[in-house]
Amino acid sequence: MSFQAPVGQQSIAALYNDHHGWLLGWLHRKLDCPHLATDLTHDTFLRVITRPSTPDCREPKAYLTTIARGLLIDHWRRQDVERAWLETLSVLPQPLVSSPEEYMQVLEALYQVDQLLNKLKPKVREAFLLSQLDGLTYSQIAEKLGVGERMIKKYMAQAMLACLSAELVGAV
Rank of each mutant, 00 (worst) to 15 (best):
S2R: 05
S2M: 02
A5C: 05
G8F: 07
Q9K: 09
Q9H: 09
Q10R: 12
S11L: 05
S11R: 12
A14F: 11
A14I: 11
N17H: 13
N17D: 15
H19V: 03
H19M: 03
H20K: 09
H20T: 03
H20C: 06
G21C: 03
G21K: 09
G21M: 05
G21R: 10
L23Y: 06
L23T: 08
L24F: 15
L24P: 01
G25T: 04
G25K: 05
G25V: 01
W26T: 05
W26S: 02
H28Q: 13
H28G: 10
D32V: 04
P34T: 04
P34E: 03
P34G: 00
A37G: 06
T38L: 13
T38D: 15
T38I: 06
D39F: 03
L40Y: 09
F45H: 04
F45Q: 01
L46R: 09
R47W: 10
R47C: 12
V48R: 06
R51E: 07
R51Q: 13
T54V: 13
P55W: 09
D56A: 14
C57W: 11
P60S: 10
A62I: 12
A62S: 15
Y63A: 02
L64A: 01
I67S: 11
A68I: 00
G70S: 06
I73S: 03
I73K: 04
D74M: 01
H75M: 07
W76L: 09
R77P: 02
R77A: 11
R77W: 00
R78T: 00
D80Q: 08
D80G: 04
D80E: 10
E82S: 06
E82L: 14
R83Q: 13
W85V: 11
T88R: 14
L89D: 11
S90V: 12
V91Y: 13
P93R: 15
Q94E: 15
Q94Y: 15
P95M: 08
L96F: 07
S99E: 13
E101K: 04
E101C: 03
E101F: 00
E101G: 00
E102D: 09
Y103W: 05
M104D: 12
M104T: 10
Q105H: 03
L110P: 10
L110Q: 14
Q112H: 06
V113A: 08
D114N: 11
D114R: 04
Q115W: 06
L116H: 01
L117W: 07
L120A: 14
V124D: 12
E126L: 14
A127T: 03
F128D: 02
L129A: 08
L130N: 07
D134T: 05
L136V: 06
T137W: 01
T137R: 08
S139I: 13
Q140Y: 05
I141D: 03
A142Q: 07
A142V: 09
A142I: 07
A142H: 06
K144A: 01
L145W: 08
G146Y: 10
V147E: 03
E149L: 08
R150F: 00
R150P: 01
I152V: 15
I152G: 01
K154A: 08
Y155R: 10
M156R: 14
Q158F: 02
A159H: 01
A159Y: 03
A159S: 02
M160C: 11
M160S: 10
L161K: 05
L164D: 14
S165T: 14
A166P: 03
E167F: 05
E167M: 04
L168G: 12
G170P: 11
V172F: 15
